[in-house]
């Protein structure tokens, strides 16, 4: 029979190394999904725990990062379902000042976060995975557990909404 990798000290060490090296990137992705750094850390933690459960198999397949990304997105979507359907994450970026005299770039970032927060979660995830993680449609569909057609349609709707919101409210033209 084929030998399979066991969960042992070496495996845990490899996982620890992967978690340490990937968490910053995953946290940024999670932040764009939820708009809050603390919650982003929670989603990454949950995603990495899910990753740990499947780690021996993933290492064999070489699919650690893809699964980690998928697990973080799933953790975000699960948490979103738990939250009130009327509650939309809109917390301010703590690295951004407030007030009328903030720099335009900072305002753009705040506007983007706000516009992202207005999107349904799956549309938001499509945008983040496609244009922040630079995943293609197939990889995005795999991460979200949906069809490529769904990714295309959700992304299209999301871009349309973002364009409308940002152009209207913030005079951004992209």
């Amino acid at each position: 029979m084929q030998l399979t990798r066991r969960r042992d000290a070496a495996s845990d060490e490899a996982f620890t190394e992967f978690a340490a090296s990937s968490q910053a990137r995953l946290r940024r992705t999670a932040y764009l999904l939820c708009g809050d750094w603390d919650r982003a850390a929670d989603h990454v933690q949950e995603g990495l725990v899910r990753l740990y459960v499947r780690w021996p198999r993933l290492v064999r397949d070489g699919s650690e990062l893809a699964y980690a990304r998928k697990a973080v997105v799933s953790a975000f979507l699960d948490a979103s379902r738990r939250r009130s359907s009327t509650e939309v994450p809109r917390e301010d970026d703590p690295t951004v000042g407030s007030g009328e005299d903030v720099a335009a770039a900072v305002t753009d970032r705040a506007a983007l976060l706000s516009a992202l927060a207005d999107l349904p979660e799956r549309q938001r995830a499509c945008v983040v995975l496609r244009y922040f993680e630079d995943l293609d449609v197939r990889a995005t569909a795999a991460a979200l557990g949906c069809t490529e057609g769904t990714v295309k349609s959700q992304t299209s709707r999301a871009l349309s909404s973002l364009r409308s919101t940002l152009e209207t409210e913030r005079s951004l033209t992209w």
Binding site: A19, Q23, A24, R27, R28, T29, Y31, L32, W37, A41, V44, Q45, L48, D93, P94, T95, A105, D108, R109, L112, L113, V127, V128, Y131, F132, D134, L159, L162, W174
Partner: peptide, 17 residues
């Protein structure tokens, strides 16, 4: 949009996981 996303997430506070 790509550039704006990267800028937005470029400065995480300390801490994390």
């Amino acid at each position: 949009l790509r550039e704006l996303l990267r800028e937005t997430a470029a400065h995480p506070p300390e801490g994390g996981v």
